[in-house]
Amino acid sequence: MAICAYVTFEDPEGGDDERDLALSAWREAGIDGRVERWDDPAVDWSAYDAVVVRSVWDYILRREEFLAWTRRVESVTRLLNPSPVLETNTDKTYLRELGVPTVPTHWSSEGLPDWPEYVVKPAISAGARDTTRTADRDKARALAAALEADGRTPMVQPYLDMVESEGETSLLYFNGRFSHAVRRLPMLAPGMTYDDNARAQLRTPAPDQVDLAEKVLTAVPQPLLYARIDLVRLPGGEPAVIEVELTEPYLFLRYEPRAAANLATALRELL
Rank of each mutant, 00 (worst) to 15 (best):
P223T: 13
N81Y: 03
Y226D: 09
E256N: 07
A50Y: 08
L95Q: 11
S125T: 14
D114Y: 02
T93V: 15
F252L: 09
P190H: 09
L95I: 06
M187Y: 12
G14Q: 08
V35W: 00
A47H: 09
P249C: 07
T153E: 10
A219H: 06
S75C: 09
I31Q: 05
R137Q: 11
A128E: 10
A47K: 08
P207S: 07
L23N: 12
A128G: 06
V56S: 09
V241E: 04
A200I: 00
M192A: 15
V43H: 02
A29R: 10
L79W: 06
T8S: 15
C4N: 07
P205N: 02
P101C: 03
S109V: 04
T169R: 11
E164W: 00
P104E: 13
A260G: 01
V210R: 15
T132P: 09
L23V: 09
R34Q: 14
L234S: 06
A206Y: 08
R72P: 06
W57K: 05
I242T: 15
E243F: 09
E97S: 13
L224E: 12
F252P: 02
T193N: 13
T265K: 14
L231P: 05
K121L: 05
G99I: 00
V73A: 09
F66V: 00
S108V: 05
R152D: 01
Y250S: 15
V76D: 00
L67V: 03
T247N: 14
A144I: 13
P223D: 14
E168F: 12
V103C: 00
E214T: 01
V73R: 01
R152I: 12
T90N: 10
Q222R: 10
A264M: 04
Y118I: 08
S46D: 07
I242R: 13
G99S: 04
L172S: 05
R34C: 11
K215W: 08
Y159K: 07
P239L: 01
I60C: 09
P207R: 02
R19V: 05
P239K: 07
E74A: 15
M1K: 12
T131C: 09
E148N: 00
V103S: 05
L263M: 14
V119D: 05
T132Q: 13
G127A: 14
N175F: 02
W26K: 05
F9A: 11
R63H: 06
E65H: 14
D49T: 03
L224R: 08
P257E: 00
S125P: 01
L224P: 08
A206T: 13
F9R: 07
D11M: 14
I31F: 03
V56W: 04
Y94R: 04
A213P: 13
Y118K: 12
V73T: 06
L98H: 03
V120C: 06
P122S: 03
P82N: 02
